[in-house]
Design a protein around this nucleic acid. Structure first.
Lengths: 101, 101
DNA sequence: AATACTAATCGTACATTTACGATGGTGAAT
DNA sequence: ATTCACCATCGTAAATGTACGATTAGTATT
């Protein structure tokens, strides 16, 4: 990508907001989060049934959402229960609110 | 990307929200929009001075923001004045608000 | 018509994203 | 210890994203 070597200095929260936005930047991930908002929690397998995508693809999307901090996984053997990460969710909500005035 | 041929059917507004989010998914674009919110409007050249990026790179980011509908350009020869697209901005704001409850 | 200025677009290089199937790992139950 | 179910991760392929410099296009002004 021929990146500039030094890291650009952005204003406070700019990168955090961009990171959240990027995680939301795919319809499947939006749909997963909407699903989680309704159900409050769900298992990977549930999503695989809901969406016409491979299990690995769903898993990848979950990973990205987790990396962005928007969801968290809880071991519930033999499944994993995913829920909204309420704390970060609130942060994201606030950042978007501030951003849009 | 070995995409599924048929298009996945998402719920209302899911794709619109994802499209906005994707456009916001880069810190430079967030910064540009913040700048526009302060200044209300600005020229491409102004941004080139503000950010340590090539003119073509700024132009590309502006194009994406325009494609997403978040900004609009007005011919002000020999420059182009960019402003927030208030109408779509309101739509985006609403979509994010709804999404975060 | 020629010039000057601005910004878009082109061409390129490399990173990242998105999808799939295949494989590996973890915890429960047998 | 073996097996089963579930899910993560790996490997891969193709699309998209991000950056740059160089070129082109558009709009006054001369």
């Amino acid at each position: 990508m021929k990146r500039s070597l030094e890291h650009i200095e952005y204003k406070e929260n700019t990168e955090a907001l961009a990171r959240f936005a990027k995680a939301l930047g795919h319809p499947t991930r939006i749909a997963i989060l909407k699903h989680l908002e309704n159900q409050s929690c769900c298992f990977t397998g549930d999503l695989v049934e809901v969406f016409p995508l491979a299990q690995s693809t769903i898993s990848q999307h979950l990973k990205e959402l987790k990396n962005a901090g928007l969801i968290q996984g809880e071991l519930k053997p033999p499944k994993i229960k995913y829920c909204i990460d309420q704390e970060n969710w609130k942060i994201a909500k606030t950042l978007f609110q501030q951003f849009f005035d």
